[in-house]
Design a protein around this nucleic acid. Structure first.
Length: 298
DNA sequence: TATGGACCTGCACAG
DNA sequence: AGAGGCAGGTCCATC
């Protein structure tokens, strides 16, 4: 279903600068653990991913270093886009060290088990689209929706001979019918996405402004969109705007806080408050480690 | 302010 | 093999 990386001519492999050595599991958890929905494991063990007008393949070396390649000719902009996307200018070791792991044995264990795990910085609008699709869906199915949307309603990525398609932009989504969206396996989410598209497409600066507003205001604005509740708003701000204070409470966090922090029976709003109070201003980063750990061990 | 059911539908997983 | 149920949430009606 997805466009394979075999078609165009590819650049040489280049090291992903500023990125730590990681295990295969941590790399998988980073790109395919629920933050992003357009990375696909290839038969040869590489990862093929797309965002915005970027197409890239990732390869993990025996030394744990990540290398990348892209369609020939797009090396410069891909290198810059990768730096943003993987947050290589952010000091994640320092951020992670600032989490309260010294007084939280479970968090310490999560950090130890997923060294190098980090928060991606994805395009804001695409992140919104991805998480509008996510309600009561598993990652595999969300990925199928994204690929159908890209294949049927997204523009070809320039300079790659039409081999790849980007996700539709919000104006492009606004031009679709709800039925067309529904046909991309969106189910009841189609109405949310269609209505959100009408709203956003009529306000050209709205997304860009929302991305840069302080967290509380940005979240309020997102919560006004159909299909965007607390969890989706926090995911969009965490994974699409670098707001590390955003603390999405999904079923995994519900489960892990209940089990590992003796908060069984607490409701999501209470847990969100606990998260902010206990994990502090980088609660969203802590959340990612707890989430990864619970998915593997829970 | 707090529950509970409806909303689409593809697919994992018992039996 | 294939019927019935659930799934990484939100909304709305009804206490």
């Amino acid at each position: 279903m997805s466009a394979g990386p075999a078609d165009p001519r590819w650049s040489d492999w280049q090291p992903l600068a500023g990125y730590p050595a990681v295990t295969a599991e941590v790399l998988a958890e980073t790109v395919d653990g629920g933050q992003a929905f357009r990375w696909h494991a290839q038969p040869d063990g590489t990862w093929f991913g797309q965002w915005s007008e970027i197409v890239a393949t990732l390869r993990l070396g025996a030394d744990g270093r990540v290398a990348w390649r892209c369609p020939a000719g797009s090396e410069t902009r891909t290198a810059a886009a990768l730096a943003t996307y993987f947050g290589t200018d952010a000091d994640f070791p320092a951020l992670t060290d600032a989490l309260p792991w010294r007084t939280d044995a479970h968090l310490a264990r999560c950090l130890r088990d997923f060294p190098g795990l980090r928060i991606l910085r994805q395009p804001f609008g695409e992140t919104l689209l991805g998480f509008l699709c996510s309600a009561t869906k598993q990652i595999v199915q969300i990925k199928q929706m994204q690929e159908l949307l890209a294949a049927r309603h997204g523009a070809p990525v320039p300079g790659t001979g039409g081999a790849f398609r980007r996700l539709p932009t919000w104006p492009e989504l606004a031009a679709c019918t709800e039925a067309e969206l529904r046909a991309c396996q969106l189910g009841f989410r189609a109405r949310y996405i269609w209505e959100t598209a009408q709203f956003v497409a009529a306000r050209p600066d709205w997304l860009r402004e929302t991305e840069t507003l302080p967290y509380p205001e940005a979240k309020d604005r997102l919560l006004g969109l159909p299909g965007v509740g607390e969890k989706v708003a926090d995911c969009v701000l965490l994974f699409g705007a670098g707001r590390l204070e955003a603390f999405p409470v999904d079923v995994w966090i519900l489960k892990t806080l209940g089990r590992r922090y003796a908060l069984d029976g607490w409701k999501p709003p209470q847990l969100a408050q606990f998260g902010r109070a206990h994990f502090g201003p980088l609660a969203g980063l802590a959340q990612q480690f707890l989430f990864a750990w619970e998915r593997r061990h829970g």
